[in-house]
Amino acid sequence: MEIMNLVVTGTLGAGKSTFILSASEMQVAAPDKHNTGDEAFFPQDTTASIDFETLQFDEEMAIHIYGTPSQVRFDFMWEILIERAHAYVLLIAAHRPSEFHYARRILNFMNQHAQIPMIIGITHNDCEGAWRPEDIALALGYHNSTKQPPIVAVNTQDRASVAMALITLMEQCL
């Protein structure tokens, strides 16, 4: 079995858990995972521990998707997760500009620990006060578009949109 480890990180309430769930639901014949008592391990609303789902898309191939908890006090988990990741997604809620500096911190941390393919996914684009992706890029310090990683708008509740984001990420891996 060939397994790729993906990390989904991002700001508070950006939609990391939702993104991971949507991705795992793409599974061809998804085994019913949600009666295994995961709820106790991985609480539903805000993620205190790690999110973890698998997506097996071939008999011999699967991705394991890990979601980081977003509160700063859990940042030691980032290191554990990023150390073994093959690629990662940074999710940012477009309607919470006050969190952008935090996103920048995550970005710096990840870049220091691993030079791996990544994309930035902008969520909550449909919400009141959402910033446009290009403005968010500037807020993250990307003043020069050649150095910036792909930035995509994503609706984490929509499987097709999550698939699009993952395709962009995989293209970075080739």
């Binding site: 480890n5 995972k33 790690i50 698998t54 699967a62 890990y66 554990i80």
Partner: peptide
């Protein structure tokens, strides 16, 4: 250590791959 099952004799109801990944995460934590 990176969460892949090497060998197992687990009760049939358990998913080896998931269990393995969790064990590795738990140990490093």
């Amino acid at each position: 250590p990176d969460g892949l099952p090497l060998a197992s004799t687990l009760p049939g109801t358990m998913d080896e791959e998931r269990t393995s990944a969790m064990c590795a995460a738990m140990l490093s934590l």
